[in-house]
Simulated assay, not measured.
Amino acid sequence: MSARIALASIAVGTSGISTALVGWCGQPYVTTLRHLTPEENGGAEGIEMTTQNLLLTPRITRVYDPTFLIETKRGFAKWELADKLVLPSDKTVEPGTEETVAETMDKDEKVLGRWVVKWGEGGEGTCHEVGKMIRFYNVHEELI
């Protein structure tokens, strides 16, 4: 009886681990990439990316400032939202202010999470997540 329980536990555990790995690898895969025009995005160009969770529910991420998208070293992803960014010297911001750089929404456009930058001295911004944000993206070159 203990051997049966051990075999059943191993089977269930292996199935759970493989499902978790598929979810981790597939979560950042972008199925749709759309360019946001300045008219749609408050005067600046942006990007809208559609990904799916493990249950194949669409998650829409709008990146309002694409300069916050950088190359990543994470496996199975091409881009990530930057932790820190320094503005070029020709742009100025007021230190201590915060702004939303990106938002992740469900299919009904209910906001699930935000990527927020807090500006410091010299145009140095530090970002943090509010809610449940998708941060990594695997964009196939055909979509670009």
Rank of each mutant, 00 (worst) to 15 (best):
E39W: 03
G125R: 01
A77W: 09
E48I: 00
P38M: 01
D83C: 05
D106M: 10
E45Q: 06
H35P: 00
R114I: 11
L85M: 15
E48V: 01
T37M: 01
Y64D: 04
A82T: 03
T100K: 04
T31Y: 07
F76M: 15
N53H: 13
G96C: 09
E142M: 07
E142K: 06
L36R: 01
T50M: 03
L143Y: 00
A44G: 07
S15E: 07
L54N: 10
A20H: 08
V117F: 05
E109S: 04
L56E: 14
A77E: 12
R114K: 15
I17F: 11
L85E: 07
G125V: 00
G96H: 07
G120C: 08
I17R: 07
A44K: 04
V130D: 12
G13K: 01
K84V: 09
T37E: 07
S9L: 14
L56V: 12
T14G: 07
R114M: 13
I134S: 05
T50Y: 01
I10F: 08
I10L: 13
V111D: 14
S18Y: 10
K118H: 13
K78D: 14
G75H: 12
N41C: 02
R62W: 03
K84A: 14
C25T: 09
T72S: 06
K73D: 15
E99L: 07
W119V: 06
A11L: 12
L55T: 11
D108R: 05
N53I: 12
A20P: 02
G75E: 13
I60H: 04
V139H: 00
G13C: 04
K132C: 03
I134L: 10
T104L: 06
P88Y: 09
T72Q: 05
K91T: 11
L36D: 00
F136R: 10
M105C: 06
A77M: 13
V22R: 09
D83R: 05
D90M: 10
M105G: 02
I47S: 02
